[in-house]
Computed example of a mutant assay.
Amino acid sequence: MKTEMKNNGSSLILFWFDSLNIRLLQIILVSITAVVCWQVFSRYVLAEPSSITEELSRFLLIWLTVLGSAYAYRKRSHLGLDIIYNQGTRLQRRIMHIMIHTSVALFALFVMILGGIRLVLMTYELGQKSAVMGIDIGLVYIVLPTSGLLILIYALNFIFSSAENLEDAL
C-alpha cells in the first residue's frame, strides 16, 4: 500500500513536470515560428529587417533543444545503441538499465546542474550581455541546470522503478 501511495505521489510530480515542460516547449516553438516569420516579413516586405529576431530565435532554439532533450529522455525517444542490451537476459538488461540511468543521472548532476550553475554564475559575475538585445547571457544559460534537474529527476525515477523490478526478479 505504501508503495502504491509513493508511486502515485511520484507519478503526480512527474506528470506535473512533464506538463510544464511540454507547455514550455510548445510556447517556445510557437515563439520561434513567430519570430522567424517576422524576420522574413520585415526583411522582404518592409525592406527593414528587425535587429533582434536573429538573436532571439537563436536563444529560443537553444532552449528548445536543451529542454527538448529532457523531454525526449523522459519519453525514451533518445538515440541509443541497444545491440548489447537486446542480447542480454532479463536480469542483465535490468542491471544495464540501472547502470545506464545512473550514468545519465551523474552526467545530469555534475555536468548540467553543477557545471550549468557555475556557467550562469560566471556570466553574471562578468556581466556578460547579449550583443543586440542586451539581456544577461546567464538567462540563456539557465536552461542547462533546469534541464539537468529534469533529466536527473527522470533518471532517478527510471533507476528506482528498475530497482524495484530487479528485487522482484531475484
Results as ranks from 00 to 15, higher is better:
Leu60Trp: 02
Ile98Lys: 03
Met133Arg: 07
Val45His: 06
Phe107Asp: 01
Tyr124Gly: 01
Met99Asn: 13
Gly115Trp: 02
Val36Thr: 05
Arg58Asn: 07
Leu25Lys: 02
Arg43Phe: 04
Tyr85Asn: 07
Arg43Leu: 04
Val132His: 01
Asp136Pro: 13
Ile27Met: 10
Gly68Thr: 01
Gly80Ser: 13
Pro49Met: 07
Ile22Asp: 08
Glu48Cys: 11
Gly115Lys: 03
Ile83Arg: 10
Val104Met: 08
Met122Phe: 10
Glu48Arg: 14
Thr123Ile: 02
Gln128Phe: 11
Ile117Asp: 00
Ile113Val: 11
Thr65Gln: 03
Arg23Cys: 11
Leu106Ile: 15
Leu46His: 05
Ser103Thr: 13
Met133Val: 13
Phe107Asn: 10
Lys75Ala: 13
Gly88Tyr: 15
Thr123Leu: 06
Ser69Gly: 11
Met96Thr: 11
Val35Leu: 01
Thr102Glu: 03
Met99Lys: 15
Leu121Met: 10
Val30Met: 08
Gly116Arg: 02
Trp63Gly: 06
Asp136His: 14
His101Thr: 02
Phe110Asp: 09
Val35Cys: 07
Ile100Ser: 09
Ala131Lys: 12
Ala34Asp: 05
Gln87Pro: 05
Val104Leu: 08
Ser42Gly: 14
Ile100Lys: 11
Pro49Asp: 06
Gly88Asn: 12
Ala70Asn: 03
Ile113Asp: 06
Met112Thr: 09
Leu25Tyr: 03
Phe110Ile: 15
Leu64Ala: 14
Phe107Glu: 03
